[in-house]
Amino acid sequence: MLAPFVLVAPAVLILVLLRLYPLLLGVNFSFTGDGDRDGAMVGFDNYVDLLRDPLFQGALRNVGLLVLLLPVAVAIPGLLATFIYLRVPGHRFYRSVYFFPAVLSPVIVGAIFNLLLSFDGPVNSILGAFGIGPVDWLGDPDVAMFAVVGVHVWATFGMALVVFLAGFATLDSALLDAARVDGASLTQVIWHVIIPSLTRTIQFVFVTTMIGMLTSMFGLLYVMTSGGPEGSTYLPEYYIWIQQGQMNRPALASAASTVLFVIMLVVGLLQLKLLRRAGRED
């Protein structure tokens, strides 16, 4: 009689005690004050502060920028996987090399690129040899965010590449042969055969890349730009960390966490919906 409940109890207990309860505590905490008003209920004051803070606005804008850059971040591993699948010369070598950065920790990747992208670093020397003026990759507010996203894509595309290769394994090679016999060019093969056959893989990579961008860029930001220059590379997680650890405003940080949670929830639900719809089409 009790057995079913007892059996689900561990999962439910873990979820409620270690996930839901702390989450509710955090949301509740975001309605209390900091400093002199520590512990007092302040209603939506923290949220008003957040929306007025140009730094947090900048962080949200950067989230928007990440969403816009998402297609690029998915296209790069997709295209490279296609080349490997089509057996360009040296494809075995590339297959292992492309995955290599995925095993490095973000801190190490950040440190390496700090050296490469520094003002008097090798990247600028090479550009200089071609007569292109030095670019302050991590010191120019218009460039820094793209530099960090670029490094993040470099560091993580190996995982997406593996997923794409797994997708290719399910591709019917007879279709490719047929397209070749019909005289299709490479772009036509990619556009009319490969992309339609890999819809579900592409969607999966979209979802995982998005999550990766929103939740695991902290290490790179911390090492490469510290949110700068001029606050141009803030993301919500970095903002939360600064407010809680450096500014001693844990309640404001809680409010920012709640906003980030809602954003992730909305993005997650939208993606789930997209995936379901795609599933029905199959």
Binding site: V6, A9, P10, I14, L17, L18
Partner: peptide, 20 residues
């Protein structure tokens, strides 16, 4: 069967509490 399930629940609850 039921006995075993109860023990499992106790064990998990214990682990969860020490985790906290």
């Amino acid at each position: 069967m039921k006995q075993r399930a109860v023990w499992a629940a106790v064990l998990v609850a214990g682990l969860a509490l020490t985790g906290c």
